[in-house]
Design a protein around this nucleic acid. Sequence first.
DNA 1: GTCTATAGAGAGATAGAC
DNA 2: GTCTATCTCTCTATAGAC
Lengths: 203, 203
Amino acid sequence: MARSSGTKRAILDAALELAATRGITGTTMDDVAERAGVAKGSLYYNFSSKDQLFEALLEEGVGSLADALREARGTLVGWAAIEALVTALLDRIAANAALAKLMASEIFRTDRAWQKTLFALRHEALLVFAEAIEQADAAAPASAGVAGPGAAGGASTIMASSVFGAVLMSGLEWLVFEPERSRDEVAAAILASLSGALAPRHR
Amino acid sequence: MARSSGTKRAILDAALELAATRGITGTTMDDVAERAGVAKGSLYYNFSSKDQLFEALLEEGVGSLADALREARGTLVGWAAIEALVTALLDRIAANAALAKLMASEIFRTDRAWQKTLFALRHEALLVFAEAIEQADAAAPASAGVAGPGAAGGASTIMASSVFGAVLMSGLEWLVFEPERSRDEVAAAILASLSGALAPRHR
DNA sequence: GTCTATAGAGAGATAGAC
DNA sequence: GTCTATCTCTCTATAGAC
């Protein structure tokens, strides 16, 4: 469900753009109304409160992330799956930098009205990574210093965060501070850091 | 310089704790005063404004990070340097989770009064990683699909973000959502993801 | 150097006309 | 379904006593 009259969409878009730079708490309903080109009353006609507006925004944005990741992985396994997930996530960050910034700043907040919603969505997205990692980790050879397959000993959610964090931070570093780089260059750098380019050959 | 009378310290500590969960904009000067056990007037006696208070806080916290990282690296090179940096950063995140949360949520904001200060400090910390990476990357064998040493082709700041992001996100995932795990387990999972545990043996 | 009290601006939310 | 006008509360910051 997208729109009643386009107004809802305009409000969500305006709210996202503003919150990406000022943060949610720093974005006022007056700002959103002005940017969306509607009156403040219309905000409250479409959303019951500021909290509810941003919950809807995060639900829409982060909610589709897990689907996109699952689709990107498809039937791939092992390192190919990791590669696909990393580049898909990077592309999504590039296509929606505002949402990525918002995610980065909200994901570890524990006092929000929408905390449960966001937590569930975050968990779902991480799970796609964790599944691919469990499978790839089991298949890969022993890694340096740690005993064989399953190197992380069941800590696949931590490894998933690790990969997710690597992509999110690099992606935003690129978009916010080094926009002159190409997408492929950034993707290659991330994949290099994850493929052991920094490690010696003991694996 | 730490204190005039302990009041400054108490204010900074209170501000950090509150901002870690509510965010800076969501933290009021009244909250800070109450938690610090002083009157609001004392906040403005010690800091000229709310912005200045939080700038001082970030400067103190993030500013010491680069020093700590440099010290952790010491004279190590190659993968040993990366390992030392990763574990040092993880330990610092664990020791100061509040600051880590704050960093995660402020690092990509571009509208803050203290933006220039924070950018410079962030850059300094990333540089320590970038230097170690340039050296390790040049020394390591060819990585999968990409031509030999210097795999990232000068994108060492992106690789640095990648490693930094991996540690920051995993560290917070651990502290916020999976505190029952041990530090060593988390460190091992992060290092595994960076040492190529997920990649095939083509390197 | 720390307090209380308050000024003044800005925030979320609602009422009611059109 | 959208607007304008306004209510009420909260926030930053300051003034002035102690």
